[in-house]
Amino acid sequence: MRQLAIWRPGSTRVLPGFGLSMGISVLFISLVLLLPITGLFGQLAGLSLAQYWAIISEGRVVASYMVTIGAAAVAAVVNAVFGLLMAWVLVRYEFPGKRLLDALMDLPFALPTAVAGITLATLYAGSGWMGGLLEPLGFQVAYTWVGIALAMAFTSIPFVVRTVQPVLEDLPAEVDEAAMSLGATDGVAFRRVIMPHLWPALVTGTGLAFVRSLGEFGAIIFIAGNMPYETEITALMIFVKLQEYDYAGASAVASVVLFVSLTLLLLINIWQGRFVRRLHGGKG
């Protein structure tokens, strides 16, 4: 296992630049990340609690939460399976085109979301390559809930692959050799021997994919159809309220989204911290 740097608190002030790097970091984080959030609270302060509740519990808004959370959950589960498969194939097997496949995994992060959005919408519309195949079979993707989940899944593909891959690479060969020599079948060995090592990373990656999907906008709006109550995501809800100059309404809904995503981020960070400590803890 790779050795982590041994890091001795107290002996490290030999190096210069503490004041400068602290100054730049704190200034930047305060101005760029934290100060703008005060604008949101300023706007919310103008609302009474009853008004706030009325906005965030309005029927159309609640419907948008349902659509967003439901589609993001489906996308995250699909990505968990797909990501696990890709990570396994990329780490364990050698085959022609493997390097290309590995590079292709990062495409959804490199490709601008608006480009992904219009491309998926065009592909899966009735006249598109995929839509033309699927719609005669009675399966409509574009302008439905399935399209939203598809777009979310596409933009978050790299999360699971890239969190599971390094863990799988670090797994020593003896682990599965032992299982196999004791006569376990592939399925049993994978479940009982490999999965216990993988699942913390799998949960982290799936969680990140879910959070990303909750906030995704550019890739979804083109394929979603954006029908109120049916295929409208919460991010679009905020955008629509802004275009109607309903700043208070937009802020109220945004505060819900912000709260949920920051809470999930914090949980994932705590989870990841615990899991990294468990992996490397006893060894240092």
Partner: peptide, 28 residues
Amino acid sequence: TLIDIPFAVSPVVAGLIYLLLYGRNGWI
């Protein structure tokens, strides 16, 4: 943890908080 905020925040919300602060109605 703080530097991960932009990864978790929806881009629309990111735009909104800047608009609220630096737009004509914001305090800055």
